[in-house]
Design a protein around this nucleic acid. Sequence first.
DNA 1: CTGAAAGCGCTTACAG
DNA 2: CTGAAAGCGCTTACAG
Lengths: 332, 332
Amino acid sequence: MPKSGRPTSKDVAQAAGVSQSTVSIVLAGKAAGRISDGTAQAVREAADRLGYRPNLAARSLRLGQTRTVLLVVPTLSSLFFGAVYTGAARVAAEHGFGVVVYPWPDVAGPAENPFAAAHEAIDGILASSMAVDVLDGLDPLPRVMLDSDPEGEAPTVNFDVAEGMRAVAGHLAALGHRRIGHVAAAVDAWTFRARAEVLSAAVRDLPGGELLRDHTEIEISAARTAAGRLLDRPDRPTALVCDDDLIAAGACKAARGRGLDVPADVSVTGFDDMLIAAAVEPELTTVRLPAEELGARGMAALLELLDGRRPGSVSLPGRLVIRASTAAAPRG
Amino acid sequence: MPKSGRPTSKDVAQAAGVSQSTVSIVLAGKAAGRISDGTAQAVREAADRLGYRPNLAARSLRLGQTRTVLLVVPTLSSLFFGAVYTGAARVAAEHGFGVVVYPWPDVAGPAENPFAAAHEAIDGILASSMAVDVLDGLDPLPRVMLDSDPEGEAPTVNFDVAEGMRAVAGHLAALGHRRIGHVAAAVDAWTFRARAEVLSAAVRDLPGGELLRDHTEIEISAARTAAGRLLDRPDRPTALVCDDDLIAAGACKAARGRGLDVPADVSVTGFDDMLIAAAVEPELTTVRLPAEELGARGMAALLELLDGRRPGSVSLPGRLVIRASTAAAPRG
DNA sequence: CTGAAAGCGCTTACAG
DNA sequence: CTGAAAGCGCTTACAG
């Protein structure tokens, strides 16, 4: 009978007429061959009756581990990271782990670091799409980097963005586009640097190819402005390759605002294939990035790491999804 | 000097030549008038030098509280809940609390309940947009309900959706619309029931008003189908009121697919004013719901509750945002 | 097959 | 102004 508040294992022990150790062993599922069936049964019944749930703080303290992982993402104002969380949480749950999301530095601000936070009681870290080195010199906890520079110390799980971007370039080249605008994300992250490099190389290798580049925040109205600058040039590109579906949505608005038809006058491509790609008209040709799988594979790798093994780095294929925002280049 | 792993307050005490209690008092910021400045200084230096951070599990165990709150949301596949989290986390951080997100039952599945999860070491619960009674009979932890039926036991923080829906109806009525279709969300939640009731009443009060209603998941292609059913009726509505911006995006596609212009032939309204409302063309007339403030006010209320006070229920105004998807009803 | 004891790292009365 | 001690609730060697 608990005096007050939540029952403890001591209360269960008393109710079942056994010792605290017996309760612990039974409820941990380690009774086999150690505790008689009758006793085990009595313990479980008492626990049920009292509504006993173990105090996790005490267990963590005793065990020196929390079975909780911190997922650091740049923002939750993007469906992408919701999907990463979902994948990570699913795999974690299968192994009795919880996932705590920490949007950083978006919400917490750069001053606070993820490890000074109140929910810092964690066993490991999964960090997605962080600017280079931003996590360096912080906590030495086991860590897997998602969608990040593979040159770092920690194991990575990445998308094959190079392949994705080459597919975009190939698709546009086949449609006869030669003068291509890159509406690039003004974000210091590995994935965007990789995309820019690959696109530059692909256009360079294209006979008569010419690349114009401008930068923008990943946000519709800023993207519209940046894309507009490209479209207002005398040597107007016939295709706009955008680093994100949101940027592509802005680029479509810029085109329409200038009386240009997408895709008849300008082709536009996105990247990610999030919800918005299929919401706008015309629906976007884009590269599908399996965000949920990124989270799932990342968590699997972190669990390996926590288990003392050394996971290999993983690269997940992206896939070109051809929809209605690309068409043959207009005759120049 | 820590033997291995993380330094503890004992290590800091030894390094500073003081007792563990002194370390605890100094680092908790309670030194004033109790510990000499020199000693306090020495403790802080030693802690810095060793890179000491308190073990949260131990602190939680000792204090009987975790300074962590669980935010239960139906899904993270919606920007709305990302915004709720952001607001809640900001207020929580100001009070030294952390927020753990738990998408339920979307990710965890209905079988698992939020309190059996590994990250269950929490002081209170913030639950947003849950189906009625779904949390009843679970953990008796202090709780605030967001965007939920105000008839329940727990304090609520809600949007004034009635006012928002009346504004939509008034706007359409002023534009001359009489035959109005409601593309309603097929989701068992207070907010959607409230919207349906208010819209029904508003159209009933409109001379010559007629309401047609169909239901859909909150998802573009399903919404397109549902809106299509309404548009295919012989008594085709001249306006489609949608329970969500995503549904409105689908409704626009349905209209366009039938050669109908939005807004010349059909007006369409959304609800929420999330990203997508300004991404599609025409941009959506919709009701802006301050999701971040919902999270912030909810957390403030929960903090009050945790503090032993009884917070009042709050209703946050929505605001009609008129954009390009509504226009005068076509002459019938 | 079961129990008594120790100890994880912290904070807080209490003693001096 | 500072220290020694107790105890939060758990799990795991160890003893019997």
